[in-house]
Amino acid sequence: MAPIISIRDLTKTYDGGFTALDGVSLDIEEGEILALLGPNGAGKTTLISCICALVSPSGGSVAVGGHDTLTDFRAARSLIGLVPQEVSIEPFETVENTVKFSRGLFGLPPDPAHIEKVLRALSLWDKRSNRNMELSGGMKRRVLIAKALSHEPRVLFLDEPTAGVDVALRKDMWDLVRSLRAEGVTIILTTHYIEEAEEMADRIGVIDSGKLLLVEQKSVLMQKMGQKELTLHLAAPLADLPAALADYDLTRSEDGQALTYRYDTRAQRTGITRLLADLAAAGIAFRDLETRQSSLEDVFLTLVDEGARSTTQEGAA
């Protein structure tokens, strides 16, 4: 199946000379939830802004549903709903009129039933006659989402949807995203909360310094980068590591009460059986053990770190 969004060699250099996007290519499949993860200033918002025509790209191309965003912009844009990061909203207009305006702006005929459905799904129905300025910050953010959903997009961009949002709204937002996905809407969200990506996404793209470092199925990503740690809590403190155990990647805790063994879940042999046998042979007893799968956060930090290091090396060479 052809991807719903196809990005080729997209670059953006701002007037000041800052390169926000440096040759990004990415295919987004219809119906998936893609999380773009990266630190502040990585280029996430610029990427979305280039796709949604808020920023003119310096080079490369983007097609949405097979329509080029520059030459066939009407067809491309009519598929897209955008929820921006900043809460930008007409203060004096009512919630309902604001949302209806968005639908009209996209050239669609009025559909009160759809507007009601969207407002109810976002718990805005009771507030529909309120002016936007009377709403709390979280409610305003809901209005932004309602505006984007008012014109029934096939692709929804959520730029940092849960930044500065309370727990209840974040949970609502996640539920909403899931139900939209069930309807077949493709969702691209940016975040720097790793738990959010881990919770919601099918695929994760990591972006830093304008480069897409990797895009991978979430499960594969976690497995691929998945280091595990086995921690052994010892029965008696250990002053030194016996020579017989020197070959293992072992770390002794400062008080000597615990040993940590790092291993790769991808490896054919993890070495755990042999390690435990060798420990027993060396007369080291333990009273407890635990294993820990590295989280996406560890994966992410490793990637960004490696990215930074390779950039530095390139610079040196």
Binding site: A53, L54, R74, A75, S78, I80, S88, I89
Partner: peptide
């Protein structure tokens, strides 16, 4: 005003010439 409060994003991203 839309430029000032930021709602111009919607005009730019809509299928409008």
């Amino acid at each position: 005003f839309p430029k000032f409060i930021g709602t111009i994003y919607e005009l730019l991203s809509a299928p409008l010439s």
